[in-house]
Every structure is written in structure tokens, then in C-alpha cells.
Design a binder for these strands. Structure first.
Lengths: 412, 412
DNA sequence: ACAAAATAATTCAACCAATGAACAAATAGC
DNA sequence: GCTATTTGTTCATTGGTTGAATTATTTTGT
């Protein structure tokens, strides 16, 4: 987790408190069980007096609540446990995809407090119409959140395409979008959230990126650096380094679909030959398994394939072995380059992990020079297809926890 | 540049000053011309009073010096310029390679104050013998530094191989080293530096990583994120993100030599087919150019090849075109994955850039989806083969500038 | 049942570093 | 020489942490 506040510059006097608010809140969030003030003091090196003062601020700001005293052996006054507040700020996650819209609300503790998915073919709709429907979903989510005593502090929207730093959707091929200013279009509708200083009201990001964050969120005790590969129509990767998404210079990192993986080299629409997408993309895998033309929604297609593989269908097995091999070549390239030790298979791949993992691991151990010293773990995503929405909402919550000063009304 | 100090934990009172020491010093280091105290105050947002106090500490600690008043238009008391001190702490850079040893000293301003290269075939020597010779070189460098009024605050050693986080050289194939505890072997000799709290006396790292840092150091105004590819016997890449080296989970990032690049697929010793190294590695390029078996040292081989290409030798031209194409495929993969906008060709590639660049750019623009929106720059390394040693010494200096508190004798 | 020990949390004077306003220093322009 | 202007320092003030003492609440021992 990066240090927040004053990122570029000086440490002014008030910054001290801002930093310690973040430190203490982060400690409470990371602790396996509700810590006492004394625990936090011991863990951070601050004095108990300081921790008490900081915690008072956090409780007053509804970011932290006291829980039942955790039972402890031995004598002494029992501690009052500190937990992230289940009321207070929450994050709104949104997703526009090819065949559905989704919205969800996640509170500070990470619990999903609201979740709606509306299936519909979005391709025929204009961006403005699609976003109008999304705004309706968001309004319902906001009303539900308010009913539960939550305040939406920010929103994040997942889009299956390239998004630049300003939030402009440069290209979403499967939606047929090009240069769509999502923020401007949504501004025509009622505001999504109650603006909080220091927290952007709407962040637009690639679905693969946000799905990777969702994984981080679903398993906070898991590794802080990993590669999240999601198989959809295209193949997207999200790179998480030290608990933070790595976006690249312009936010376009993770384009893994066109890594060359095959010596034989099937031609690809990108102009190269032997691209990963031609072997492990949804279309290619379904065709190889004899399911071409079924035109199923992404998740049911994966489920159908998993069923076939489970009962031993030879075509499905062969298709998955081939996809896994190709995926393994690409994963090996990434691991050689970035030295990651964990690969999460998400999206359509999650269900198929039992069949994809062996060939992936085989390629990795063959091609990664350091594999002998440090094994690479390949595991399915803990979240299903909803990883991107949940990750989107979680990204808002993460930001609040990383920099609580904005929410507490201090000048950021 | 990452925020230093108390990385994991609390912000105690003294930390405030430590942070501002780093902020002010960093500002002085980054300024294009010597700034006044008032300039620093304006740039950082601190008050002039605070900046004065901080600068007093920095001057007392010999990290900063006052320069001649920079001429300025208009009225007012003339400013006293602040510059990094040319006396005071310095970094020791060391390198062990196949056919030479090197040592250099870099001061805070980035100037190379000492540089020795001793050519010798290191392969027949045991690690202990090789490091004994290196220690002698280091002792001479240290004496020279002291004569110039410099104090060596730390050392970094570049090795052509895989180094783990503890500084153990796991494998250096071209040296024939395996599991060499460099630190322990060097401890038998007189100490390399005067230990400073907060600064490790010896860091061991991969030469490609340190060469990448050298590039950052040679051109401080250049991009903060880039890929540095150095062509030696193998092909190593150093990844610099936001001005810091990206080392990966265990420090083994940058293994780019075995990215698959060719649909035809020449078999490679790594077990894969069509690996980059088989097309753009030194051996492959020299063989293709008809220079096989010449067994030249790395840098003269590259120079010879450049000469041939310059006079239009068709075999050399063809060999470089093919190498460039392969390199381009690999670079495109990296750019798709990490969204970098600058690629630096270093090591043996630096001299060959005029012939490598066109095919690299061609492959990149064909294969990188976002290339249309954001061009990728390919340029030669500013430093020559000495990039790794200079980068090693520079890495020590960078650490002092990023966290001056240790040098100033404060508890880190 | 009661005292002693132990641990948790709060209170308060001291202290450290940044702040802001006032002030001294040094120059250019008139 | 006088004024405007900018630089750098001095000093009382302030925000926030520190450390010791104090209060609160339990377990353990008798």
C-alpha cells in the first residue's frame, strides 16, 4: 500500500496526523482479529496516547467501531476490539459488459451489501443509452445503500476496453465503443455518490484491472503481488504489485492477448502470428471443443465446457489442454519478466482451472529459469464473474482506508 | 521516487523532519539549476523558515553546499544557490564480469570521480580469487576517494547472473558461479566502505538491473519509467518504474531472453523453441553475420559488427535486421504487458541501435495495440558498457538522497 | 470476599517541529 | 540616496506526539 497524501511534496504539520490516521486505520484493516488500541500501538510503534487520539477521530468519523471485547487469557482489563465500521462510507462498483450491466456496494469491512446484475445485450445500444440504464441501476444501489445507513463515497466503473488516464474509453471493441467520455455521459443523470474531498466521484478502468483488484479484496491475507488473467472474449491481465494495481505509464498495461505463443503460428487479426488469443481466447477454445456458433453468454459457455470436461469429453479435454499450453507459454513469459510467484485464473478461466492448471504449470516449469528455486502457484479466482464489479467497489473502499483524511473532512 | 523512512509503520515526531530532509534534498537534486531556499519553499509548499532550518541541517551534514549566486533579473537581495555537495558521501560501484573487473566512485552530484577497469579472463578463477582481486580494486578506489575528500557510504556490486534478496549469487552461468555468498567472501578483506546507518554496506544485484539504473542516473531529466535491454552473451532487461528499479517478488525480474519470438522456432537450450536469445543474443547475431568463432570480448564484437554494418556489409545488415525483428517482438510483448513508452538499448546493443531501431519499431507498431495513440521511443543507452558499474555506484547515491536521515546520524 | 497483580485506556505537562509574521540583508531602478 | 523588491533569519505560536502518572477493569491468590 503506497503512502498517501502529499505524494509529490512537503510534509506539513497536519500531514503528520493524516499519515497516522492512515497508518492506524490500515493496521486495523489488516489485523486478522479486532486489535485493541494497545495492540495497534505496539504494532505501529506509536504511543498508546497517540493511538487513542487517532482512534477517537476515526470513530467520530464513522470509519471505525468498537467490537465486543476479544476474549484473552490472563489478568488485566479486557481490551475493546477495533473493527472497520460497517456503517459509514462505502464504495459503488459498476460494470458495463457485452451482455450485462452490474452494480454493487461494498462497505469498509469488505462485505458486499448490495449486488444487482441486469442481463441484456448491450451491443445494439448507443453508449448514452447503455449508460442511462447503468445510471438507473446505480440509483437503485444508492437508495439501497442509504437504507442500510451507508454513504457512497465514490464509484468505479469497469469497462471491457482501453481506458486512458482521464477516464475516456478509447476503444472497447466488443461493445463497439470508441472514444466514449463515460464521465460526461453519466453527468447527465443524477449524481452517483456524495462527493468526498480527496476521493474521485467516478473512476473508469479496464475490467481486467478491476477484477484483479477484486481478487486482492476477496483474499486480503493472500499474496500482495500476483498476475490475474481473465479469459473473456479477449484475454486481459491485471498486474498487482505490492497490493496496488500496476497501470503502466498511461494505464494500458496488461494486454497479454497478443503475446506470441506458438511456433506454428496461426495468423491473428492483430497482424502477428500465433497470438495467445488465437489459442486460449473464448472463441478459439469453444471452436476447438466443438461448441462453435453456440453464441452463449461468457459464463455459461465456460460452465458448459467445464461440464463436458468433467465427464471426460475428449474434444473439450483436448481444447483445454491446448489452451492451457498456450496460456502457460504466456504466463511463463510474464513470470520471467516480472518474477511473480502467483497466477490467478479468473473470468471464464476460473471454472476451468482444474484442466488448465496442469499444462500451465508444465510450461512454466519448463520455461521459467528460476522455477526450480521458487515454485509458481496457479489458482482459480476466489470471486466468480463478478470479480470486476466487486473489485471496482473495493477500489473505492481501498482508497478511503489508504487515505482517510479526505473522508474525515480535512483538507487533503 | 518512493517515500522513504518508516515505510511499514508509524510516523513519529522525528519522522516529520526526516521526511522533509528528503523532500528538500530531493528538490535540490531534481532542480535544473541551483535553486534558492525561497525556490525550494515555493516548490514544496513548506515555509521559507522551515526550508532554512532543513537546509542548515543538510549543509552541516555536507550533503548540500551553497553555490555562487545565480544571476537573476529584477530587484531584490540575490539568492544563494543550493547544490548537492561534491564532497561528503559517495557511492562505490563494483562489477565482476566475464572478461573484466571494474570499480568506480560517484559523488552526490552524479559525477564519476574514479573509474578503473581491469581486463582479465575471470572464468578460470575461483569466486574467492576473483573477489580478492576485486577487493584490491575497491581498496584503491576507496583510497582515491578519500584523497578527494569523499566518504564512501555504501557499495553495490553488479554480477552477470541471478542474485537473490539476501545477496547470494544463485547462478552466474557465464562466470561458472553457483550459490556464491559474495558478501561473506568479501568480508575476509578490508571493509569496502565506512558503514552508515540505514545504508547497506554492500548490495549485490544483477548487472542488467544496475545498468538500467545507470541510465536513469546518466539522464536525470529523462523518463522515469522505461525498459532497459542489454545485449550481452545473454539478454537481460532492467525494468525501471517511477524512478525505481522493479525487482519482482524475489529480485529475479527481467529475464527476457527466453520470450518466444519466432513462429518457425529454433530450438533453444532452455527447452523452448524460438527464444529471443537464439535470434538476438550475441552468439546468434555474430554467427549470422559470419563472425562466429572470433571469440572477441563483448564490446569489441559489437564495435566490429557496427563497423561492418556502417560500410554496408550485407551479412551484417541482414543479421542485425533479423535480430532487430526478434527484439521487436519481445519488446512489443513487454510494452503490451507493462505499457512503457521508452525502450533503451544498452550493452552491446547501444552501438548497434541505428540498425536495430527500425525493425524494432516496425514490430512494435504492428503488435502494440495502443501504439497509435502513444508512440514508443527506442534509443541507445547514454552510457556505454560501463553502465552497470556507474549504475551500481549511483544506486548508493540515490539511496542517500532518498533518505538522508541515516547519513546525518539520526536513528533511521 | 478481599487484596494484589496485570493489562487497557485516558489525562496532562513537556517537547519537537512547522508556521506565520515581523525583521534584517542585499540588490536594482530611479 | 531613496524606494521597491526579494532573500533569508528570528521568534512567539500552534498542532501533534511523547512519556509518565492516573484511572478503569479484569484475573489470580489467599
Amino acid at each position: 500500500m503506497t503512502r498517501p497524501a502529499a505524494a509529490s511534496g512537503a510534509v506539513r504539520q497536519g500531514t503528520l496526523r493524516e499519515l497516522n490516521l492512515a497508518v492506524v486505520l490500515g493496521r486495523i484493516a489488516a489485523a486478522p482479529r479486532p486489535p485493541s488500541r494497545a495492540d495497534v500501538a505496539a504494532a505501529t510503534g506509536l504511543t498508546r496516547a497517540t493511538v487513542s487520539a487517532v482512534v477517537d477521530d476515526l470513530i467520530a468519523g464513522r470509519l471505525v467501531a468498537e467490537s465486543e471485547p476479544a476474549p484473552r487469557a490472563g489478568a488485566g482489563r479486557p481490551a475493546r476490539g477495533l473493527v472497520l465500521a460497517g456503517t459509514g462510507p462505502a464504495g459503488l462498483g459498476l460494470e458495463v459488459n457485452v451482455d450485462y450491466l452490474a452494480a454493487c456496494v461494498v462497505d469498509l469491512t469488505g462485505r458486499v451489501r448490495h449486488h444487482t446484475v441486469r442481463r441484456a445485450d448491450l451491443r445494439p445500444l448507443s453508449p448514452a443509452d447503455a449508460l442511462a440504464r447503468l445510471a438507473a441501476l446505480a440509483a437503485a444501489a444508492r437508495a439501497d445503500a442509504q437504507r442500510q445507513g451507508l454513504t457512497l463515497a465514490g464509484a468505479a466503473l469497469a469497462v471491457p476496453g482501453l481506458v486512458d488516464a482521464a477516464g475516456l474509453v478509447r476503444l472497447a471493441p466488443n461493445l463497439g465503443w470508441r472514444d466514449v467520455a463515460v464521465g460526461d455521459l453519466l453527468a447527465a443523470h443524477p449524481p452517483l455518490v456524495d462527493p468526498v474531498p480527496g476521493i474521485p466521484p467516478l473512476v473508469v478502468d479496464n475490467e481486467a484491472n478491476l477484477a484483479a483488484l477484486g481478487e486482492l479484496h476477496a483474499d486480503p491475507t493472500g499474496p500482495a503481488s500476483f498476475l490475474h488473467v481473465s479469459g473473456e472474449v479477449g484475454i486481459g491481465a491485471g498486474i498487482v504489485l505490492d497490493g496496488a494495481l500496476f497501470r503502466g505509464v498511461r494505464g494500458w498495461s496488461g494486454e497479454i492477448g497478443h503475446l506470441p505463443v506458438d511456433p506454428q503460428g496461426r495468423p491473428c487479426r492483430c497482424g502477428g502470428r500465433g497470438c495467445l488469443e488465437r489459442y486460449a481466447g473464448q472463441e478459439a477454445v469453444l471452436a476447438a471443443a466443438g461448441l462453435a456458433g453456440a453464441d452463449l453468454p461468457a459464463d455459461t459457455a465456460a460452465a458448459r465446457l467445464a461440464d463436458l470436461a468433467a465427464v471426460g469429453d475428449p474434444a473439450a479435454r483436448a481444447a483445454l489442454a491446448e489452451a492451457g499450453r498456450a496460456l502457460g507459454v504466456a504466463v511463463a513469459a510474464v513470470v520471467n519478466l516480472l518474477d511473480l510467484d502467483t497466477v490467478v485464473l479468473g473470468g471464464g478461466y476460473a471454472l476451468l482451472t482444474p484442466w488448465l492448471r496442469p499444462p500451465v504449470l508444465a510450461e512454466v516449469s519448463r520455461r521459467v529459469i528460476t522455477a526450480g528455486w521458487s515454485p509458481v502457484t496457479v489458482r482459480p479466482s476466489a470471486l466468480g464473474p463478478e470479480a470486476a464489479v466487486v473489485g471496482a467497489a473495493g477500489s473505492v473502499v481501498r482508497r478511503i482506508v489508504a487515505d482517510p483524511a479526505g473522508w474525515l473532512g480535512r483538507p487533503g
